[in-house]
Design a protein around this nucleic acid. Structure first.
Lengths: 335, 335
DNA sequence: TTGTAAGCGTTATCAA
DNA sequence: TTGATAACGCTTACAA
């Protein structure tokens, strides 16, 4: 089974070209005799034929494959991104290769290099840090499009969300309702996404006359559940009370924070007003008032794909695209 | 940039073989002169060298790539599976190609075929139905390992969870506490996973003397959020009351059911006792008593990978592996 | 309408 | 120690 064109040609006493033309649907165009066509299709019916995409790629120097490098699939934002990207690529006849870095720059470099070795036609990357981003640009010869995080590296084509505006909008909406200072739990502040969200928050706080105040922000080094736990525990230790109004810089931070509340108090106090980035259906499991910013993943993916298409067809320009996020309110409780 | 072995050989006045041996780390073995080695590494330092994996694959007839075909990445169970599988494959030097079928058997066939065309070394499939599974076995020539769903197709190597036992355990644990009949919301009952969970539930109910009773089960055709919504709406319409104790056959069904409750009542009544399959951290966002069955994804992945490894190295045997699930209780309320 | 030959970049084999 | 050459299966260009 799994015959090659040559085998078919030999078995049928035809030439490789004839078989190939028929197999590639060019029979009419080259007016291959109907008899020959039938012979070939009968043979294929019997034994099957599978294109050898590897050989094709080698000859044509393209694999019809894109790479997607993300931190992790278990983060629902990234899995949504990956899913949409996979759909978009397939629509255009591309396969997508998804790889995870788990936040390790070493891994990221290895993966991006390995994708280039596999001769993918282009690589989408959610980079871990500025240095890695710069490294890829310098050492890779494949079209690169960076997603979600813009470290301001020169020559990087980025497609991101306006996290600054996003943070401002979220904070303003909450302030509008609660009329009190809001605490901000900051995961990895080194990430441009998080830093921007924070700056938007600060702007909104100062706009309504609330001093930017270190009492209103907690910091952690990373962006994981355990960092959220840590910050919530520190807050409670310091204030002898849980925060009445707070924003988490990302979903993992929120998860961590809430799990501490649940352990401490047996439940999540319903009067807490919660703001968060990265929307998720299960947020509605909470009984609290929830404000969340949903990123426009569809637009991000579409724009990144367009940018990539342009790069694949030879465009050199560095381009950036900034998408808007959308505020989702789940309000049930009066304040 | 991105020189080929031949170019390096020409530029340096060496033969292809010499360059290749050095590049592949066989310099010592073939006792290539140090001077030659240095020349080559200096050159590579300067210009870089990227293996052409495509050419290598063509020659060796293996791609060091596995395919993983799943319904969708946005289902957290599958994204967890995909993530673990990606890690496991990478450990062993394989790349993983993840593709989603969105539950469409046509898509599934196309994808599996396309993976074979790309000459992956083996394919993991979470199949949509028995027919597709049988089709792959008949028409594909690559090692196949089926995950999560065992349709009982002859010749299928499957790695699954014991959903029957899982359903029994979950139901028993809940019954033990609530001492009342429990309602079961069944998503796509045609899936072996769901059918098994249901049969475990029925066994547990009858064991303690509760008649199997159609009043205690709701059915839908699919396994999506909207099916959960539908069933919950029908329940409420029929009973003029929400279910006090219920089990959802999967996470999407649970999400749908709860969203209806939230809309109807403004919140999710905390006294409802909830059982569900497919564990998720955000379940602890709920204020309710929650019983959930966590599948042992790690073991599933490990066993599937081992099975695949054996197949890749020529073993023909059809093997099955059944993993145990683990009960997770989140109890806060007395009953 | 069909056939032939070169080449994609690697690896394997045999020779020197 | 190094070099030459034939594959792998496909596409392209040109010839018949």
């Amino acid at each position: 089974m799994a015959k090659t064109i040559e085998q078919i040609a030999n078995d049928l006493g035809l030439s490789i070209t004839t078989v190939r033309l028929v197999l590639n649907g060019k029979a009419e165009q080259y007016r291959i005799s109907v008899k020959t066509q039938e012979k070939i299709s009968a043979y294929v019916e019997e034994y099957g034929y599978i294109v050898n995409h590897t050989a094709r790629s080698l000859k044509l120097n393209k694999t019809e494959t894109f790479g997607l490098v993300i931190p992790r699939l278990s983060n629902p934002f990234f899995s949504a991104l990956a899913e949409l990207m996979e759909i978009r690529c397939r629509e255009a006849g591309y396969q997508l290769m998804i790889c995870c870095t788990y936040g390790d720059p070493k891994y990221e470099n290895k993966l991006v290099k390995s994708l280039e070795e596999r001769n993918v036609d282009g690589i989408f990357v959610v980079s871990v840090d500025a240095k890695s981003q710069a490294h890829h640009i310098k050492h890779r010869n494949k079209p690169l499009v960076f997603l979600d995080r813009d470290f301001g590296v020169k020559g990087a084509s980025c497609v991101i969300t306006d996290n600054c505006e996003s943070g401002y909008q979220l904070t303003s909406a909450m302030l509008n309702k609660v009329q009190q200072p809001i605490h901000f739990f900051v995961g990895d502040g080194g990430l441009p996404t998080i830093a921007d969200r924070l700056s938007g928050y600060v702007r909104a706080m100062t706009t309504i006359g609330l001093q930017e105040d270190s009492a209103h922000t907690s910091y952690a080094d990373h962006n994981r559940t355990q960092d959220g736990e840590l910050m919530m525990e520190r807050f409670i230790a310091q204030h002898q009370q849980y925060p009445l109004n707070f924003i988490a810089s990302s979903l993992p931070i929120l998860e961590g924070g809430l799990s501490v509340l649940r352990e401490r108090y047996g439940h999540i106090p319903a009067q807490i007003n919660i703001g968060t980035f990265d929307e998720h259906v299960m947020l509605s499991f909470l009984g609290n008032n929830i404000w969340s910013m949903r990123q426009d993943e569809k637009t991000l993916v579409e724009q990144a794909f367009l940018l990539m298409s342009r790069k694949v067809t030879g465009h050199k320009a560095t381009e950036r695209f900034v998408a808007k996020a959308e505020l989702i309110c789940r309000l049930g409780f009066d304040i």
